[in-house]
Amino acid sequence: MSQRIIPNIWCTGTAEETGEFYARAFSSAGFSASSEVESRYPTEGLLDFQKPLAGKPLTVAVQIENTQLILVNAGPEFSPNPSISFMLNFDPLMFDGDESLARERLTGLARELGVGGTDLMPLGEYPFSALYVWVQDRYGVSWQLMLTNPEGDPRPFVIPALMFDGPSQDRAAEAADYYVSVFASTPGGTEIGNRSPYGQPTGKASAEALAFGEFRIGEQWFMAADNGSGQDHGFTSGVSLQVNCDDQAEIDRLWEALSAVPQAEQCGWLVDQFGVSWQVVPTNMGELMEREGAFEHLLAMKKIVIVDI
Rank of each mutant, 00 (worst) to 15 (best):
A74K: 04
G114Q: 01
F212R: 02
V158P: 14
F49Q: 12
P154A: 12
I251K: 07
E16H: 12
P80W: 14
G97Y: 14
E214G: 07
S259T: 15
N227Q: 02
L69K: 11
F90K: 06
S79M: 06
L71Y: 14
N89S: 14
V133T: 09
G140I: 00
P156Q: 07
M289W: 11
M223E: 06
E214Q: 09
F157R: 08
R4Q: 10
N284V: 04
G193N: 02
D226G: 07
G203H: 14
D308F: 13
S181L: 13
L147T: 04
F157E: 15
D308V: 13
A33G: 12
P197V: 07
D119P: 14
S27V: 13
P282M: 07
I70W: 11
D170Q: 10
F49G: 10
T186F: 06
G268P: 07
N284W: 05
A23Y: 05
G234T: 03
Q263P: 13
E16Q: 14
D232P: 03
A205Y: 01
Q63I: 09
G218F: 02
L162A: 08
E151P: 02
R103H: 07
S28A: 14
I309F: 11
P150R: 03
T67A: 15
I306N: 09
A224P: 01
T18Q: 15
D247N: 09
F183S: 06
Q279N: 15
E112D: 01
E208S: 13
C267K: 07
F212C: 02
V115C: 00
G116R: 00
V60P: 12
R24E: 07
F128Q: 03
G238D: 10
L254W: 13
A249N: 07
L93E: 08
Q3I: 12
L241Y: 13
F78M: 11
P127K: 14
E219D: 15
V281F: 10
L298A: 15
F295L: 04
G199D: 04
G116T: 02
I192E: 01
T107L: 08
D252R: 12
Q136Y: 08
F128C: 00
W269T: 06
T59G: 10
P150C: 06
N149A: 08
Y132I: 03
F95W: 07
A264M: 12
D98F: 10
P156N: 05
I192K: 04
M146S: 05
A249P: 01
F128L: 01
V133Q: 08
Q63P: 10
A205N: 05
E256F: 09
T236Y: 03
